[in-house]
């Protein structure tokens, strides 16, 4: 619980007053037409959509999942956030192609690129999927806000989710996309300020850079361990061996008890014992420091195993047993000794083994750099597409995407330094649902009176801008691509804006359902949503831009297969115990292969798109890649100059 003083409340009241002013001011502009309600009249200079791109990459959940990966993997975890580098390539490739096409949204672009029944079905499918996706996004953003309010005010998780997401809905209902862009701009400024302030504060609270480095060099070694749920009422032991020589580094002196359940107080005591063992060099104790034979731990819970590896910095393997040593199971291989590895951006643990394999890194580089040639290779593309189309010119669109994502990558590095500072203060937290709140804890527990209110106003700004972005985007799909296109093509402007408002409300309700499904651990869901969920359509998203022969049937079949396969491989089959929970990069490649087995045969068994349709698209958008036959035809018809 955090107490707010007068100065804190003053900041929050000022912020809410500013939001009300923007909402009322832009209410009139949003009513002019749906081009204003959804695209701000397509006349924005590059720096406005750029701040908006930055703002959409900054939500209340972002510091949570970045803290989740950096607390666990050290600076190497930052590479998880590197996927957004796709924007750097896209700014000069797919962004330009998209802006030239003049499509409002990705679904509309698809109807220019594909034709016939396949394209129509695809547009319907994507309109429906987008409505789901925006509910899903709003669900985890709402949960993030719920966790923050739980931390500050001690509220139930649902209170923060319900109150502040509903507030965002009221804002966007009144002001439309103009309000979204302006909220993004002020949020971009406010958020960058608080991110810098809190992060510097975090580094200072941990004693400054030199102190952080020297402490990490003196801390004991650790590894995370989730005790198997079926090990209850047995006795466990741990063995740590040198990965090169196989010599014992540390092992349990006797065995420790594993209970079905232990009290919360006992659990908290174990956690502080582990943290104390990490922080202090034990002169009289060596070897395994936690858990020891006196400890009783709980089956199914997560713990930090702590040991003293002396001055050795060699890699180790960690094994555990629950049957007195007749069988051992490995929980970490090629793991680090000490804590200095956390400062290394490239702390690899081998080609395929350990927590940070080279294969993982190569996968991420491919995603980040080749992804920029496609459209939709990252789910961020869909809100970015709206930003791209609201820019004044093609060049403004390019600059805005590039500058916005450069800011994002700089921002992530500033965060990471503060999260390493948090690790120095609080090592040994094993539950990701708890340590993913690291950055917020630094802000709310260490900032002085007055600044806490400023931080909360900033968090509110971040939350409202994200909520309003996705409510507006989801409503745009429901209104333009679903209602206007299929249900009532003759609808008036006023009735379209009204349908936009009703669908905003439906999205709000759907987001509460996804809040329940997601629950408390945000980091794992974000890795799924930002990365693995789109694995099966990652390659098709590139092929549609660069390869003329790829048709709507191939693309639609990839989407239909990927939706089910991704949920099955990542969530459903592991939870029912059918397959083990695989490392994320392996899930990515498995989904790429499984889906290719669907869409490649479908593409070759169906006809290419109609040539007239392709030629018209080519002349308008000028795509790059394998477009030979279409380009020749366009030249023959005199639509583009032949060279």
């Amino acid at each position: 619980m955090i107490t707010f003083q007068f100065l804190d409340w003053l900041w929050i009241v000022l912020f809410v007053a500013l939001m009300v002013f923007f909402g009322v001011y832009f209410y009139r502009m949003g009513k002019r037409s749906q081009s204003d309600f959804f695209l701000a009249g397509r006349g924005l200079p590059w720096w406005l959509p750029a701040s908006s791109v930055y703002a959409t990459h900054t939500a209340t959940d972002t510091p949570i999942w970045v803290a989740g990966v950096v607390y666990k993997y050290g600076f190497s975890g930052l590479w998880y956030a590197f996927f957004s580098a796709w924007c750097a390539i896209s700014a000069f490739v797919s962004t330009r192609i998209f802006r030239r096409s003049l499509a409002y949204s990705q679904a509309e672009w698809q109807s220019l690129r594909f034709g016939g029944l396949g394209a129509e079905l695809l547009r319907g499918w994507l309109a429906g999927w987008q409505v789901f996706m925006n509910m899903f996004i709003l669900g985890w953003v709402g949960i993030a806000m719920g966790k923050i309010c739980q931390m500050i005010f001690g509220w139930d998780l649902w209170m923060g989710l319900f109150i502040f997401t509903t507030l965002g809905a009221i804002y966007v209902l009144s002001s439309g996309y103009w309000g979204v862009v302006m909220a993004d701009f002020q949020q971009g400024v406010v958020a960058f300020l608080i991110i810098v302030i809190v992060s510097i504060w975090g580094v200072v609270a941990a004693g400054g850079p030199d102190e952080i480095i020297s402490r990490l060099n003196s801390y004991s070694s650790t590894v995370e361990w989730e005790v198997p749920a079926d090990w209850e009422n047995r006795r466990g032991a741990i063995r740590i061996t040198d990965a090169e020589t196989g010599k014992a580094v540390a092992e349990s002196d006797g065995s420790f008890a594993i209970a079905t359940a232990i009290s919360e107080e006992a659990q908290a005591r174990l956690e502080s014992e582990a943290a104390a063992m990490i922080k202090s060099k034990q002169e009289e104790m060596a070897g395994l420091l936690f858990p020891t034979a006196e400890d009783e731990i709980q089956a199914g819970e997560k713990y930090t195993i702590v040991w003293d590896s002396g001055d050795s910095d060699s890699r180790v393997n960690v094994d555990v047993t629950a049957d007195g040593g007749s069988s051992w199971s490995r929980i970490a291989s090629q793991h680090f000794s000490g804590q200095a590895w956390r400062l290394n951006f490239f702390s690899f643990t081998g080609m395929f083994e350990g927590q940070f394999p080279v294969a993982w890194f190569i996968t991420m580089m491919i995603i980040a750099l080749i992804g920029g040639f496609g459209m939709g290779t990252s789910i961020d593309w869909y809100p970015e597409a709206q930003r791209i189309q609201s820019a004044k010119t093609v060049r403004d669109a390019s600059y805005s995407i590039w500058a916005g994502s450069a800011l994002v990558l700089i921002r992530n590095s500033i965060w990471a330094a503060a999260i390493i500072g948090f690790f120095v203060l609080y090592p040994g937290i094993a539950d990701s649902g708890e340590y993913e709140m690291a950055w917020y804890r630094i802000g709310f527990e260490y900032l002085p009176v007055g600044l806490i209110g400023f931080l909360f106003a900033g968090v509110l700004a971040i939350h409202l801008s994200t909520v309003s972005t996705h409510l507006n985007l989801g409503a745009m799909y429901a209104t333009r691509d679903f209602y206007h296109h299929y249900v009532n093509p003759k609808a008036s402007e006023a009735s379209l804006v009204k349908v936009g408002r009703i669908s905003t409300f439906v999205l709000l309700l759907g987001s509460f359902v996804f809040g329940v499904i997601i629950g408390e651990e945000i980091t794992a869901w974000l890795i799924f949503a930002l990365w693995i969920m789109a694995a099966g359509v990652w390659l098709p998203n590139i092929l549609q831009v660069i390869w003329w022969r790829f048709n709507s049937w191939g693309y639609l079949s990839a989407w239909m297969a990927n939706l089910g396969l991704s949920w099955l491989v990542v969530w459903i089959l592991p939870r029912f115990g059918v397959i083990p929970a695989l490392p994320d990069y392996l899930q990515f490649w498995i989904l790429i292969v499984l889906n290719a087995l669907v869409y490649l045969p479908v593409t070759f068994m169906t006809k290419p798109e109609n040539l007239d349709h392709l030629v018209a698209y080519y002349a308008m958008s000028r795509p790059i890649g394998f477009w030979g036959p279409v380009r020749k035809e366009a030249e023959r018809r005199g639509l583009i100059p032949s060279n």
């Binding site: 129509e120 429906g128 899903f136 296109h485 499904i517 089910g564």
Partner: peptide, 29 residues
């Protein structure tokens, strides 16, 4: 439940698209 909602939303969109396409085809013939 999460996967089911995603599939239902997407299929509803696609069914509307199919009906729309067929209606347009009938009109043209």
């Amino acid at each position: 439940l999460g996967m089911t909602i995603a599939y239902v939303a997407s299929f509803v969109g696609m069914i509307f698209a199919y009906l729309h396409y067929k209606k347009r085809e009938r009109k043209e013939s």
